[in-house]
């Protein structure tokens, strides 16, 4: 094993270890924060792009202005709205 390889191996072990510790210590909290943010994002799309579901709330002129930014989220949003929720989801 060359010096170079050794160093990159040590580097990799370090990274994995710190990932592992992060995973134990605060990944769940990070995920919860992102989850909260994500569901607010979906609420946001509902408010601004609500016409998609037939409930216009924001003046349509302005919702069009926001449209470009939510293009990627629209399909996941729709899927999440339509997906059947299971009680067990509440445990995750």
């Amino acid at each position: 094993m060359t010096e170079e390889e050794k160093r990159s191996l040590i580097q990799k072990i370090k990274e994995n270890l710190s990932d592992f510790i992060y995973g134990m210590a605060s990944h769940e909290a990070t995920r919860q924060a992102l989850k909260t943010r994500g569901s607010m994002e979906h609420l946001f799309i509902l408010i601004t792009m609500g016409d998609l579901l037939g409930v216009p709330i924001l003046p349509p002129y302005y919702s069009l202005r926001l449209l470009p930014y939510v293009v990627p989220q629209i399909s996941t949003w729709k899927r999440r709205m339509l997906r059947e929720k299971d009680l067990v989801d509440a445990l995750a």
């Binding site: 016409d51 216009p56 349509p60 002129y61 449209l67 629209i74």
Partner: peptide, 18 residues
């Protein structure tokens, strides 16, 4: 999907006002 959204939004009566 996006195009039809643009069309739908523009067809709304409130569109002209806003």
């Amino acid at each position: 999907e996006i195009e039809s959204y643009i069309q739908a939004a523009s067809a709304e009566p409130a569109m002209e006002e806003s």
